[in-house]
């Protein structure tokens, strides 16, 4: 009896995982198929990208500052304070920029999407779309996925730049490094990582593969959980929370594996 209950629960999990992948595959497939909901894409780019600008700038800037501050203490023991720019750049571009931007977007945008689609589900609006002959995945999920694929990398670049500027602020005010030296070490770091295809710094590849994947994860998880909301308004709250938790954890786990793969490949 207990075993069959466990069995059912396991089946349920596998089934929802399958559903999730079907939804993700469909939503990405629909990007290339008519009708294109261009207006929805633009609207979502605004919601996901433009409206996240402030928190991304703040996140990047303060992370860069705190990185410079912390590493300067460690570097001072080796007498290598002048390399603070290298450390901040490498950390921001390769790791913290993508991950923190991803986490912020998961919190701000993922929760919003889950709440919106969840309330559309419980107020029968998803059924209404279906009955009006529209595929909800095409109308609701695809524009969001596309917008995230474009905007999350953009936000990440903005976070990176803000972080490096933040590092500069600390370097010049607190550590007394001249900005010219700081910016030279920044460039050294980017160049020292090597280039793929002759012109593209490896750091940039690391830093830009991740946000694509994170953007897709955040939005597909949010849409999947939102569309499968059950149990009225309470269910909307549950979906929202789960979206933030699941997508944040997924970002951190997948970040490790992407790094592993990229280090091996490049």
């Amino acid at each position: 009896m207990r075993l069959s209950g466990f069995n059912d629960a396991a089946k349920q999990k596998v089934f929802s995982l399958q559903e999730y992948f079907v939804l993700s595959a469909k939503s990405i497939g629909f990007i290339f198929r008519r009708p294109f909901y261009t207006q929805d894409v633009v609207q979502q780019m605004d919601a996901i990208g433009v409206q996240s600008l402030t928190i991304i700038l703040l996140t990047g800037f303060f992370t860069g500052m705190v990185l410079a501050l912390q590493t300067s203490v460690q570097l001072a023991t080796f007498g290598a304070t002048m390399y603070v720019g290298r450390l901040v750049t490498a950390t921001m571009i390769r790791e913290l920029g993508p991950v923190l931007a991803g986490l912020m977007v998961a919190g701000r945008v993922g929760s919003g999407i889950a709440a919106q689609l969840g309330s559309m589900r419980v107020t029968e609006q998803i059924d209404a779309l279906n009955t009006l002959g529209t595929d909800p995945i095409k109308k609701l999920v695809t524009p969001r996925v596309l917008a995230a694929l474009i905007m999350v990398p953009v936000l990440t670049i903005i976070a990176d730049v803000a972080g490096i500027f933040g590092g500069n602020v600390i370097a010049s005010t607190y550590l007394g490094l001249p900005p010219s030296l700081y910016w030279r070490t920044v460039w050294e770091q980017i160049a020292s990582g090597g280039f793929t295809l002759r012109y593209i710094p490896v750091d940039f590849v690391h830093g830009l593969v991740k946000p694509f994947v994170f953007g897709a994860i955040i939005v597909t998880v949010a849409c999947y959980l939102g569309l499968n909301t059950k149990g009225g308004t309470e269910g909307v709250g549950v979906s929202t929370t789960r979206t933030v938790v699941v997508s944040s954890i997924m970002i951190l786990i997948i970040d490790y594996f992407i790094t592993q793969i990229l280090l091996a490949v490049l």
């Binding site: 107020t123 029968e124 209404a128 009955t131 002959g133 595929d135």
Partner: peptide, 23 residues
């Protein structure tokens, strides 16, 4: 199929209990 079903649905107009207007 899913797409054929979308076509059949176009023959129908549905009025939902909660009206289900897109808010």
């Amino acid at each position: 199929s899913f797409n054929e079903a979308l076509k059949v649905r176009q023959k129908m107009g549905m009025v939902f209990q909660s009206a289900a207007l897109f808010d």
